[in-house]
């Protein structure tokens, strides 16, 4: 079996298991895994820009917040768009669209900045958008807005969101697989490795960077909207959260930035540590996350996948030298 079919088989198996799990899982673990799906999907979306093209955004929380507030205001102004689960469809898609359009507008100036300047400019974007939502009365970020629960009668909310976020994670993952294997993905890699050379090889760098940025923002915006539904009542501080921005980077870093599975593996590891092992210290959440981040970057700069690969390389080198010695 080729590695490709193995990968597909494993993915399908995991999806099946995930689909059946809530049948006998208690509320606590359902909630933890629901959070895992949400966080992993965010990390996967961040990775399309940050991992593939090397433009690390430190402010992707802006799109979570913008997505959530877009959905809430859309429902308040024009809604409701039906009831039950289907009522989410229009607001969530619209939220993604709004974030995508916003990203497209700011993309041209902001993607001309490279490296840390881009990173910090995005931090600034999130800060400013959050501030505006909080202080401009029309947005009601300070007082808060409601979103009607779409959970069908008789279903536990955590199970409902478990499936929704699970589906979104699968969607994000498939999109990132498609991106990676297409010209688009190669363009982004080339940009990450050396933007000037990429241009010299005929890569329309500007266009691909903007596409990656818009795609990433759209996905995060949709996730933000669903998150808004799952919270129900939103203020600025429930969605425009710096730790969201940090987490997206950290999950990718820990799993292996720019890889397909890295963001998901990284999220799993971090959430297992913070939510399960250390669940009693939730008010020290940031402290623990920060400590793990620092430790991991210092110990494994390439993330888990990087560490695994270098281990494998070492052992295969070793095997080669043993073989060479045996041949002598």
């Amino acid at each position: 079996m080729s590695s490709r079919t193995t990968a597909i088989a494993i993915t399908v198996l995991l999806v099946l298991v995930a689909a059946l799990l809530p049948l006998w899982m208690g509320p606590f673990f359902t909630r933890v895994i629901q959070l895992f799906f949400f966080s992993a999907a965010l990390a996967v979306a961040w990775n399309i820009l940050g991992g593939f093209s090397g433009y690390w955004s430190f402010g992707h929380a802006a799109f979570i917040g913008m997505g959530a507030f877009s959905a809430a205001h859309l429902v308040a102004q024009l809604g409701p768009f039906g009831s039950g689960p289907w009522s989410m469809v229009v607001p969530v898609l619209a939220a993604g669209l709004i974030c995508g359009v916003f990203a497209a507008i700011i993309a041209y100036p902001i993607l001309r900045l490279r490296g840390i300047y881009f990173a910090i400019a995005m931090l600034g974007v999130s800060q400013v958008v959050g501030e505006l939502v909080n202080n401009v009365r029309w947005f009601q970020g300070g007082t808060g807005v409601f979103l009607q629960s779409p959970v069908p009668a008789g279903m536990r909310p955590e199970v409902f969101y478990y499936y929704i976020f699970g589906a979104l994670l699968l969607l994000g993952f498939l999109i990132s697989v498609a991106v990676r294997n297409a010209r688009f993905g190669y363009a982004l890699f080339a940009i990450r490795e050396d933007e000037d050379t990429a241009m010299m090889l005929g890569v329309a760098t500007e266009r691909y960077k903007i596409m990656a940025f818009v795609l990433s923002a759209t996905l995060v915006g949709m996730l933000g909207a669903v998150y808004g539904y799952s919270v129900g009542y939103l203020t600025t501080y429930t969605v425009f959260r710096l730790d969201f921005s940090l987490n997206m980077i950290v999950f990718c870093l820990i799993g292996g930035i720019g890889t397909l599975y890295g963001p998901i593996i990284g999220t799993a590891i971090m959430l297992f540590i913070t939510q399960v092992l250390l669940s009693r210290f939730l008010d020290m959440h940031l402290l623990i996350t920060g400590a793990i981040v620092v430790t991991i970057i210092l110990l494994m700069p390439g993330g888990v996948i990087g560490a695994f690969n270098s281990l494998r390389r070492k052992s295969s080198d070793q095997a080669n030298t043993t073989r060479a010695e045996a041949a002598r």
């Binding site: 010209r183 190669y186 363009a187 890699f189 080339a190 990429a198 090889l201 005929g202 890569v203 329309a204």
Partner: peptide, 8 residues
């Protein structure tokens, strides 16, 4: 090399 081939 593929990067070159793809975008040329």
């Amino acid at each position: 090399i593929r990067v070159g081939a793809m975008f040329g």
